[in-house]
């Protein structure tokens, strides 16, 4: 082993040990539990079986859960991207004098727990909340619209909660974006729309992939916000796992669902970087 390689191993050891103890080991345990056969009473036996998986994939309700989760994650990811992209452009272009302040403002929502923010959204979006009051007063809708206790409420809450992550990821991936490229494109006759489509967007794709990958993963694994803003009427893999494990105590089934989510997230994180490499 060369000195550099030895040094790299040494530097990586603490985090590798932590990941092994706090993530890999529990994940393996979880995998083992997903292969446990539960007795009729619900007690776990020592028998090994793949029945939990075959049940999951043959039960239409479970597949609907998976479809709900994927759809919500995709919608939330896209909505977060649309909301965070202009903000990230402003942050990227801000002068070095304003940038620290703007960054602090961007991440300041993270100072408040997402549970507290979710309760905030429940108050804001309720039938008698200020958002509905405003919509009715402005004459946009004749009577209050349902904004909580459904998928829309969950999506609104998640988009706001995840925006700081998306914004920071976008800015981190905007390294190649230089105003000179836009000026060059303008001098060559490209109008604002063409400049965005042909120059800005391709150069920001690394950030887009990074942010979308992160937000997708975070949405898939979020359960407090869907649970509270969904009012028990939005069913997702993550909320179901929580229910199975904590309320109904069906650990093998919960572990099976968890392994399925882990597989989806693993595939997502592997696929997103590949997406950007194609444009490089």
């Amino acid at each position: 082993m060369t000195v550099t390689a030895r040094r790299a191993v040494l530097l990586l050891t603490p985090i590798m040990a932590l990941i092994a103890a706090a993530f890999v080991w529990p994940a393996l345990r979880l995998g083992r539990i997903s292969l446990v056969q539960a007795s009729a009473s619900g007690a776990m036996t020592d028998a090994v079986t793949v029945a939990n998986y075959t049940t999951f994939f043959t039960e239409p309700a479970n597949l609907e859960l998976a479809a709900n989760s994927l759809l919500l994650s995709l919608v939330v990811t896209l909505a977060t991207l649309v909301c965070a992209y202009p903000l990230a452009i402003v942050l990227h272009r801000a002068s070095s004098r304003w940038q620290p302040l703007l960054f602090a403002l961007t991440i300041s929502p993270l100072l408040v727990s997402s549970v507290v923010r979710t309760y905030g959204w429940m108050a804001l979006l309720g039938d008698r909340g200020p958002v509905n009051a405003l919509l009715v007063a402005a004459g946009i809708v004749p009577e209050p619209v349902r904004l909580v206790n459904n998928a829309l409420g969950v999506a609104i809450g998640l988009v706001e909660i995840l925006m700081p992550y998306m914004t920071l990821s976008l800015v981190a991936g905007f390294g190649r974006l230089d105003v000179a490229y836009e000026e060059a494109a303008a001098s060559l006759g490209a109008g604002p729309v063409q400049r965005f489509r042909r120059v800005v967007l391709p150069l920001t794709l690394p950030g887009v992939a990074l942010g979308c990958g992160l937000v997708f993963v975070l949405t898939m694994s979020s359960f407090i916000t869907p649970k509270l803003l969904g009012g028990g009427r939005v069913f997702l893999l993550a909320t179901e796992i929580y229910d199975l494990a904590i309320v109904r105590l069906q650990w093998p089934t919960a572990a099976t669902l968890a392994m399925v989510v882990l597989a989806v997230l693993g595939l997502t994180t592997a696929w997103f970087p590949r997406l950007t490499r194609r444009f490089d």
């Binding site: 190649r176 230089d178 000179a180 490229y181 000026e183 060059a184 494109a185 303008a186 001098s187 060559l188 006759g189 490209a190 109008g191 120059v199 391709p202 150069l203 444009f279 490089d280």
Partner: peptide, 20 residues
């Protein structure tokens, strides 16, 4: 006129070739 309507060629100090 906006820059894209001027029909003027510009060569930048840092070249500004589109990297992608």
């Amino acid at each position: 006129r906006p820059p894209h309507g001027r029909d003027i060629g510009l060569v930048f100090q840092q070249y500004a070739l589109f990297p992608h």
